[in-house]
Design a protein around this nucleic acid. Structure first.
Lengths: 120, 120
DNA sequence: CAGTTATATGCAATGGATTGCATATAGTAT
DNA sequence: ATACTATATGCAATCCATTGCATATAACTG
């Protein structure tokens, strides 16, 4: 009748001890991202990404929001952001993902990268 | 040739995402403990405890010191103590393990627990 | 030396997470 | 309605950590 007090913590660490999920969470701690964005960032097939997102969602560490065809995920558990900061350090500038075609990724200023191409 | 920067973190989280290892580390963050002490605390067979200790030792998160027949383990990675504090809170009073027969456990003041038994 | 205690190692068996992939669903557009 | 895109789900196969247990080693005692 008395549950193991370590179990929820073990479940949380298990979620983080996975290459795809850890990368996803590291992206999400910088802000919302759609599935196609994560898919492009990981270079993994879409069903694979959706499956890892489901694991994270059912554990309650992320939540989602639909906008038309696109679903945007974000961190839902502040403990996770805190743990990630402990082991990965503070959030750095999000590296651009050119393959992502969602409207949110398109509205980022492209002029900067174009400029860099020009001078080289 | 370029290693995954997430891999050492994944390895660390994997160590923590395990009931026996997490309990061992939670005990060790309170100070040194011999194998027989951990064995009594976990209620697990000795070879099992030694195996988990080996995993932790080879990962570099604990170190050991031999004293006669007894081997005392302790935390070697401050990151682990920090992560444990994040998820488990600050260290509390170490609960006594009466089954442990190592000299270090015997030298703890037994009068206190005996006293508690008396008043009850 | 043999005997005893504390701890370590090796290894086979098993179970549960991981992965790949086919298919389903949701939403938009024509 | 059909077609198309983004995302989700179901499930079988596989892989890897976990576990149990026999045995080995280390240190002390007589």
């Amino acid at each position: 009748m008395n549950e193991d007090p370590y179990e929820p913590i073990i479940q949380l660490f298990s979620l983080l001890a996975h290459p795809a999920r850890l990368r996803i969470l590291d992206i999400l701690r910088r802000g919302e991202a759609c599935v196609c964005h994560l898919q492009a960032a990981l270079g993994a097939p879409q069903p694979y990404v959706s499956q890892q997102l489901r694991v994270l969602r059912e554990a309650g560490v992320i939540s989602q929001r639909r906008e038309g065809l696109f679903v945007y995920y974000r961190l839902a558990d502040p403990r996770v952001a805190h743990l990630l900061e402990d082991v990965l350090g503070p959030v750095t500038e999000a590296p651009p993902i050119p393959q992502c075609t969602c409207p949110r990724c398109q509205e980022t200023p492209l002029s900067k990268s174009i400029f860099l191409v020009e001078v080289n």
